[in-house]
Design a binder for these strands. Structure first.
Lengths: 226, 226
DNA sequence: GCCGGCCCCGTACCCGGGTAGGGGACAGGG
DNA sequence: CCCTGTCCCCTACCCGGGTACGGGGCCGGC
């Protein structure tokens, strides 16, 4: 039983390299390639691979959107390939979104070739695999449910929110009023309102109550770390 | 720079096997062993290893308690070794507790020797590593945040709220406006306001945003069941 | 240099939400 | 029987929050 793989990456050289590497394995077949997310989704829908190797950063449709498109069943789509995300540099914040969207793994491109190959096999088998540094972050984030974060910096950035907006959102999710948030951040209350307005608009929410819900559902805050 | 390791496991044969395996590596030194958690903590405190290989199930003090003891700084303890948990059978629920307690990794004992060795190196480097099946579970759990419920049936009435009030509270936590709640319950909007007012008063909350927080923190609603 | 993103602040307006304080109906238990 | 609790509904008021629109300063990238 060979593992059918497609490779989605905007850099042709990268695709060629991975393809050569994987095709050399007797139990892996590279059955397709695509230069961007949109085409990747199309190719996946037509060839039905077992595993999709997907770069994060791409033109036209980035890996994240592609994963969502691919794994959210938009009608009568029965085929759900495993998705292995790839990223060039270090861990970026897309990790969390990708995992939530249903990705089975996350690797750095500079990982040893043997790791990539075994990752494909692991994912195809229905298990998951993360780069060690990613695992570390995930665990840290997971463990963060008991202890209060000492530094508590809002370095994380989800859904196109700016750091400041994310910070405000978290304070909303802590139950603070605009006045209290303003005091905490040492800015005018109107500035807080502006930030909140942008947050609501960007996330498609109506009021702060829905913002709190979003914060919990997205994992920005979790029950227990009050 | 060699990696100093101690092995904590109640089975002498297992200890010997791992010790031989690891000692054969030029960059790894086995500097101690212990047959149970309590002695493991003692040994760790005296020899200050970089990595502690710890079995989950052990007499006297199990691996879980040992990790907590080891990683929760109970005074002026500066030394915090990395802990790599080992388990014989498949994933048990201790995984989550161990990770929360600060373990850096979780492996099955039947993993390939090469995996164990590389795991020690990865953990020593400050990264984390999980068995693929563990990773899968962690991701799944992370994707739809469901912190282990303390069991028990649905507390129909929490904190002295009437059923109706609880119902209203849940709808607030779903993001509905007063108008929408009124429509849903087929009552006047003012009635909804009254109920909400009582809820807020009884729970000591200020506004509906804080009510949403309470709903999540109390478990009335949980992330993922939107 | 220019442009775009981010952060900050303002004024003005409107409305949903929360408060205060009533009242009517029905149930069950002392 | 009365009393307590729950659910329902009302008027009236006020304020926090959200919207609309404008502007200034800062920085990094093209």
């Amino acid at each position: 039983m060979t593992i059918r793989v497609i490779i989605v990456d905007d850099q042709a050289m990268v695709r060629a390299g991975f393809a050569a590497l994987l095709a050399a394995q007797s139990d892996i077949d590279v059955v397709g390639e695509a230069p961007d997310g949109r085409k990747g989704v199309e190719v996946s829908r037509s060839v039905h691979p077992d595993v999709v190797l997907m770069d994060v950063r791409m033109p036209e449709m980035d890996g994240l959107a592609a994963v969502r498109e691919l794994l959210s069943p938009p009608a009568g789509v029965v085929h759900r390939p495993k998705v292995l995300m790839l990223t060039t540099f270090d861990v970026d914040d897309y990790v969390y979104e990708a995992l939530r969207a249903g990705a089975s793994g996350f690797l750095l491109k500079d990982a040893p070739p043997a790791d990539l190959i075994s990752a494909v096999r692991v994912v195809a088998a229905g298990d998951a695999l993360l780069a060690p540094s990613v695992t570390r972050r995930l665990i840290a984030d997971f463990a963060r449910q008991r202890p209060a974060p000492p530094s508590g910096g809002p370095a994380l950035r989800l859904n196109g929110l700016t750091p400041r907006e994310t910070e405000v959102l978290e304070l909303i999710a802590r139950g603070l009023s605009n006045q209290e948030i303003a005091a905490r951040l040492v800015v005018a209350e109107q500035t807080v309102k502006t930030h909140i307005g942008k947050v609501l608009a960007k996330l498609g929410l109506r009021d702060r109550a829905q913002a709190v819900i979003f914060a919990y559902e997205s994992g920005l805050v979790a029950p227990g770390d009050a």
